[in-house]
Amino acid sequence: MHRTICDFALDLVQNSIEAHSTLIMLDFFETEEDLTVFVADNGSGMSPEQLEKVRDPFFTDGIKHTKRDVGLGIAFLAQAIEMSGGEFDIDSREGQGTSVKFRFDKTNIDTPPVGNGAHTFFAALTYPGEFEMVINRKFKNSAVVYSYSLTRSELSEAVGGLDTSGSLRLLRTYLQSQEEISEEQALGRMN
């Protein structure tokens, strides 16, 4: 089972990449009370029959591992949401793409911790492949609202590629700075 809500989001992004998507959108909207994640792609999508089985942990398309009959990513997510009173919705059309939206109630004791946004976006953006990814991050509480957007191609151009340790270090520094100012802002305004 995943440790954090960020892990669920990363798992969904990886599904999108493996579905041969060329465009992936990740929205990560957080308030004091809840966290809503929306992942949409233009990948291979699923048939209505496949979509019906998507929450079944013993169903998989059999492409990645031909001798296994498990597919745990969405099954774990649906289970965690069921336990903590959130919401989960998935829509998919074969040949057109898939979108998944889920919301966790952060005040519920069974809700997993949110996790580290910067590390999650870093892992999502640096997964190998030719695809565009746009991440929208928003945080809002009673004292402060902040948001930022990340575009994979733009970041790749800025750091000179997304696969060598020197450029990854630059990207990591950039992503951390986006999150840290947010914390400073929130603390500053609340004090």
Binding site: D7, L10, K64, L72
Partner: peptide, 16 residues
């Protein structure tokens, strides 16, 4: 390795 199993076991922290 960043499959579902890797992510659940903490591969994100390993990568970092």
């Amino acid at each position: 390795g960043m499959g579902t199993c890797g992510i659940a076991a903490g591969a994100k922290e390993t990568l970092n």
